[in-house]
Each structure stands twice: as C-alpha cells, then as structure tokens.
Design a protein around this nucleic acid. Structure first.
Lengths: 189, 189, 189, 189
DNA sequence: CATGAATGAGGTTTCATTCAT
DNA sequence: AATGAATGAAACCTCATTCAT
C-alpha cells in the first residue's frame, strides 16, 4: 500500500473512531448502533466492516481513541508545582471532560466479562495508562510527605469512580470545584 | 377488588419485582430481557404485561424494590455509637451488598435522559432516600464537630460512586475495609 | 401445557417442518432462507424463532422429518418375497422419492464438519436408520446365499450415492428401472 | 493485444482459476467467497472482476479447470492391458483424487437449474468429457465380452455418484480398494 | 389471570458487485 | 491492470409488545 493511500486510510479510520467515540461517550455501548455511527459519518454500515471486523472491534478501538485522547489531555497539563496543586488540576480537568464531552464514558470501562480476551486486555491497558497519570502524582506526594493514604489502589479507584459518575449530577463550574476539593481529602496528609 | 384478591396481586407483584431486581442487579438493564425475568419466575412473558405496562415500568419498579431493600438493610444497622463508627459500618455494608449481590446495580441508576419523566422522578426519589441514610450520619458528625467536609452533596456523591463501582475491582474482605477506610477520609475533621 | 395446546403446538411444529423439509429437499440448505420458509407458511420469520432456536436447529429437525418420512415409506413396502425382489422394490421406491420429491436432498446429508455436535449426531442417527432398511435386506440375501458383495458398507454407500444423485439425470420411469437394475448388480451372487 | 500481453493475461487467468478450483474443491461453492480467492492469490477482489464478469463466471471457469485437470490425470493412466484392469485403475485414481484433493467437488457438479444457460452447458460438456474416459473403457470391455451392463448411462452415473460422494465416508487405502472393487461389480460379465 | 402465539422493528454481519483512481 | 473503498441487499437473530383464548 502506497504511503499516500495508507495516510488516507489512517484518516478514514480516525474519522470513524472519532465519531464512534463521540457517540459512545454520549450514549454508551448498547445505545449506539452501527447504523448510528454510519449515519453520522454519512456512509453505509457495510463500509464500517471494511475497516473493522465487528462491532466489538470497532468499539474497542473507539474506546482506545477516546481514552487516549483523554489521557493525552491530562498529560498535557503543566507538570511543575507541588503535587497537591497538580493533582487538583488533574481532577478538575478530568471532571470537566467527563461532564462536558463524555457523559456516558463510565459504562464503557465496565467491560463485561464475556468480551473477547484481546479486547478486554486492550481496555485494561488503557485504564492502566490513564490511571498512571494520577498515580504518579499521588506517589510523588506520598514520597514528599505531602500526601497520606490508606492504600493507593482504592484511593485511585475511588477518585475515578467519583469523577466518572459526575456527569449524572454535576452542573456548573462550582460543583466541579467542590468535587475536586472533596476528592483532594482522600490524599491529604 | 376484594381484599383477598388485592393481597394476592400484591404478592405476585412483589415476586416479580424481587426476581427482576435480582437479575437487574446482576446483569444490568440491557442484559436482562423480559424472557429472562419470566423464565426465572416460571411464568410467561405475557403475564408480566398483566402487571406492568412496559419493560421500563417494570424495571423502574424493580429498581425501586432493589433500592428500597438495599436502604432497608442499611437502616437496620445499629444506630448507637459515634458517627464515625456508624458511617464506617454503613460504608462496609454498602460495599458488601454491591460486590456480592448487585454487581451491576450501578448502571441502573445512570438513568438515560430519554426515559419517561415519571420514571426518572421515581428513581431520583429513591436515590434521595438512600442518600438520606448516609447524609443523616454525616450531618450528625458535622454538628458534633467530629466530621468536616467541603460540601455535603459532592461528598455523598463521591462515596456512592466509589462504592457502586467497587464490584469492578474489589475482591475480598480486605479491599472492602481499605475502601471504607479510604472513603472515611472524605469526612474526617 | 394442556393437552389441547400441546397438540396444537405439535401441529404447528409439524407444519413448519414439513414446509421446511419441502424447501430443503427442493433447493438445499444454502438456497433456503428462513424468509422463504416463513413466507410459504404465511408467517413472519420471528415466529419460526418461537419454535426453533436457530436456523440450524430448524433445519436439523426438518431433515429429520424428511428422513423419517422417507424411511417410513420404504419400511411400508411389502416385506414378503425373496430378498432380490424386495431390494429392487426398495431401490425403485427410493429413486422415485429422490427424483420426484426431494431433488436436493443429497446435499442435506453432507453435513459440514463444523456443525454443532448434537445436530451432526441427529443426522447421523437418521442416516443409520435409513441405511438399516437396505442393510437388513442385503444381509438377509447374503445369509441365504442369494447375494454376494465385496463388503457391505461400501456397497450400501454406493447404492445411496447413486440413488441420491439420480435427480440430476434421471428422467422418466424407464431410467428409474435401469438404475435400480444396475444397482442390483452390486449384490448379485 | 500483443502476443506477450496475451500470454501474460493467460498466465494470470490460469493462476486465478487454479486457486479458485482448489478452494472450490475443498469447500464448495457456498463456502468460498471472492475474498477467499483473492486473499489466497494475494490480490484484491476488484482485480478478479478484471478477468471475470461475475462470481458465477469465475466459478464455472474454475470448475472447468478442476474438471479438466482431473480428467487429464485419468487420461494419463496407462492404456494398455485388459479393460478390467484399466477400469479398476481409473476407479481407484478417481476416488483418490476425490478423497484427497477435492472433497467438496461433488456439489460443484450439481449445478442449480437457475444458472445461466451458457454456464450450465459448459459444465455439462465437461462432465461429458470426464465421462468419456470411463465410457471408453467400459465400451471396450463390452465389445470384448469381458463386461456386461444393464445400460451404459446409468452404470456410469452410478459409478460417478459413488466415487464423488466417497469423501464423506472413505478413510484409508483399504476402503478405496473396497469401493473400487464394489463398483467393478457393476460391469462384470 | 395467565398463556401460547405471533409480530415487526431493529440489530449485527456477509458479500457480490461497482467504480474512481 | 490493479487497488482500495464503498455500497446495498439479504441473511440470521433478538426482543418488547400485542392479543385471542
């Protein structure tokens, strides 16, 4: 395949994934049909199968796109300053993304046990990377004595759960701040 | 309708709701069909329509049953002792129920926006009562100065989110304790 | 389920199987869609799924119907007289059924290896019974010294293959007789 | 078209046909998609349409290739010796090819009635030539008095049917011999 | 009250075919 | 000559819902 064609294909795939990620983030797995994705892209269902072998594969790739994009934005935040400040910034940005762009994203990471192993693995890897961003800051704070936790794992899980479910009730900037500050208590020394 | 008949009907309805609540708590909305419910009850699908006008209505009522049952069990815990002790007991019991009995319950409370208004309202009311159990203890602790929070609302939301999503990763008693202790930090003075 | 209802259901199932068997006998597995079956029955596809869990299951049951019907007719032939006479009668009847009623039946018994085990087993059982009718007569002739064969298995296989494929070229009564007489040579002493 | 170009084209066509014939012989018409053929050739589906106007046309041509190849191999057998010996050799070779190389070939010759007339004709012609190889030996045996049959046509049809369906049940060299010997009975004087 | 039957809309998937490049 | 892309029809299957009995 020529370079030009490969690039074209990459663009096409990216367009599909972006669209699918949007829809999935808005409505969740069960409420998005391939017809929906195809329609928003103005192509037919059949075309999607030219790029992806099944709905699950498309969805997995889209979740990866969504998750990677999300993590990228978190990693793009400034890395200077004390851990507390950086963690609060991460929390706020995460909540903002969840509330504004991916209200249904939570469900996507609750992968059913009966998914193909490969796809479960991919999503778990994604979660791990995403997690890593927070974990790094938390551990830094722990080392410097600025933070204290019961255990790192449950702390991060609690943070993520709270942030991901935020779209259900958070309205407005003020609540975002309150939630972020509330979660900061989980690590305060 | 005679009293006897009304009672009979009530029993029947209760049986349906209990069964539906079980299944919904196990698998979530999309993975439970009316056929599943009917089969576990040893009844036909058609019969369910005698008691409920639609799947959504049945599901709403079942969620109510599940939620009420859940709240009842929390309210049955001892009410004596300092707020911290009582709150920790509530957290542990809540997590235990989530992990052991209703692993898919979380999704049930993420009601899609396009549900009929009446049913959204019912589920919200349910959540409010459920919330109340925790809120009461938290507010008591705040009054006595034993607790401190950023804001009560976000604190409770964060707790619930973390507990509800626990089935995804919690394994074993130790992790339950760790999560409960972690969440206690949200209110510690 | 009441007796009356059970009988009704049985009739319905029988109607479906008969229709499916007809179509399968005419056109073979790949060229019969559930839509075809449904249409000839004047019902919707969905209804078929009320009685059968999948196309394979319906097809297997239909093949069983077809095969059983076929075998029944062979077994209904007179059992008196010398083996040679009876075998020739069997051959002629078999060819007649194949040519007139089930031109595509051959393919149905060429079950792909990737069929569910249960269904493969059912069809094999069917073939065994069908085979048994011929085998009995052949073995009787062998015992009486009227027949002689190289080996019973290949002899029966050859007979069946030739008869089943007859629809492709047999036209008219005369060819039926010729084929039957030709196949008689396989056992003549 | 220059000679060189024509030769190139011929080679390409031959490669396609050989590959298609292989696949068809292995799996049959319905279980071979153009994608399969293209993939095994390391070419795209679109290219096939440059050489063939439709799947049916490609398949017909491939069947011709397969049939011709098959017949060629039969014709390559020694032509000396008594007809009985030669016929047995033909039978054994035919069965061997069917069992080892073209297990699904039988179905290919059961051409559906709704195929375009031209293609039906081509396949029939093919069968006639294939048939001719056996017919010649049988007729020679008849003339010499070594063989006797009820009628030549049905005899040949029965032989072919039995041999073609052999892949379904024949396992091992011994069964090949038994089937060949069994079929020899069809012509024995 | 409850059942068995039937429906119909919608979902995922496959694949022969077309076509601009 | 060949490719990558796209299409659209048709296949199998699921399930909430309706209804006569």
């Amino acid at each position: 395949m020529s370079q030009r064609v490969a690039r074209k294909r990459g663009e096409r795939v990216r367009a599909i994934l972006t669209t699918a990620a949007e829809l999935l983030g808005e409505r969740g797995y069960e409420d998005v049909s391939l017809e929906d994705v195809a329609e928003r892209l103005d192509v037919t269902k059949g075309s999607l199968y030219y790029y992806f072998a099944s709905k699950d594969e498309l969805v997995t790739a889209a979740i990866e796109t969504l998750g990677t994009d999300w993590t990228d934005r978190l990693e793009a935040l400034p890395v200077a300053g004390p851990p507390a400040e950086r963690l609060r910034a991460l929390l706020r940005e995460h909540i903002r993304i969840a509330v504004r762009e991916y209200p249904a994203a939570l469900r996507l990471f609750l992968v059913p046990d009966d998914w193909p192993a490969e796809q479960q693995a991919r999503i778990k890897a994604l979660r791990r990377r995403h997690d890593g961003v927070f974990r790094a800051v938390v551990e830094e704070g722990l080392r410097s004595g600025e933070f204290a936790v019961v255990a790192v794992g449950p702390t991060l899980q609690a943070m993520h759960a709270a942030m991901s479910q935020a779209p259900v009730w958070v309205r407005g900037e003020e609540q975002i701040d309150q939630l972020a500050d509330t979660l900061m208590r989980l690590v305060r020394a």
